[in-house]
């Protein structure tokens, strides 16, 4: 049926009743507060940059937010589970045992180092109709590369999740959204991160832009932190209560 929907959409585009690159198609992050702020989730046909945290004293090593990217990749992939997920970049490969079985079985890893090879691989994956989402190491990508990826993502209506080092945070980029991930330093028995939305094209940035997410030992997934998120936590708790009652 997805093929039929696609065909109908193409006819609508042809006769001018619909934009060739719809921007309303979104995938839910599963984090109620963030989905509400983003009006339904992250845009499917876009590049989303996630800036990791520095991981060494000299500041020249960084940790890609792999856990968050793997979680979001699964959220995006679930819209089309018969397709594949491409993970590009040797330095930010996830530990396969931390991935969920369903996603792992549809994952293609491309362990390339240099920026040109990564760009080529992302380009090829985006043009392939069998790939639903691309996660990649986006370090050292210039503005022209991100522009190219954004156009390809729009044309092929697939999300690209780029992991980038923190020192490139001020670099020019054509990505639709830009997120900064930092470590929550307070004592906690499980990993927590602050995710900050720095930019999101097409959305007025009038809402709270910082959230706390945490890794859950039982599920291995990442949830909005309920203990310290304040209003965000309340919103998440409410949505869970609704799910239970339903």
């Amino acid at each position: 049926m997805s093929g039929l929907h696609e065909a109908v959409r193409r006819v609508a585009v042809k006769y001018g009743s619909e934009s060739a690159h719809p921007t309303h198609d979104r995938f839910e992050t599963g984090w109620a507060e963030i989905d509400a702020a983003l009006q339904g989730g992250l845009n499917v046909a876009s590049v989303h940059e996630w800036y990791g945290a520095a991981s060494a004293a000299d500041g020249r090593k960084w940790s890609a937010p792999i856990g968050i990217l793997a979680y979001l990749a699964r959220q995006a992939w679930r819209k089309n589970p018969s397709a594949y997920c491409a993970w590009v970049g040797r330095t930010c490969l996830p530990y396969p045992c931390a991935l969920e079985n369903d996603l792992l079985s549809r994952m293609a890893f491309v362990a390339v180092h240099d920026a040109a090879s990564r760009l080529w691989a992302i380009d090829a994956a985006l043009r392939c109709a069998a790939v639903a989402v691309v996660v990649a190491d986006g370090s050292q990508f210039p503005m022209s590369a991100t522009r190219k990826l954004q156009l390809l993502a729009q044309t092929n209506r697939k999300p690209v999740l780029l992991a980038r080092p923190p020192w490139e945070c001020d670099a020019l980029s054509a990505a639709q959204s830009r997120w900064l991930v930092s470590l929550k330093t307070e004592k906690c028995p499980w990993p927590r991160w602050i995710v900050e939305l720095q930019r999101c094209k097409g959305l007025p940035m009038t809402f709270e832009k910082r959230w706390c997410v945490e890794w859950q030992r039982v599920t291995g997934r990442i949830h909005l932190s309920t203990a310290l998120a304040g209003d965000a936590g309340q919103a998440q708790t409410t949505s869970r209560a609704v799910e239970r009652s339903a």
Binding site: A64, G67, A70, Y95, C97, A98, R217, G220
Partner: peptide
């Protein structure tokens, strides 16, 4: 997947 308590990066 018998144990999900594994780090995201090894």
């Amino acid at each position: 997947n018998q144990n999900v308590n594994r780090p995201s990066r090894l």
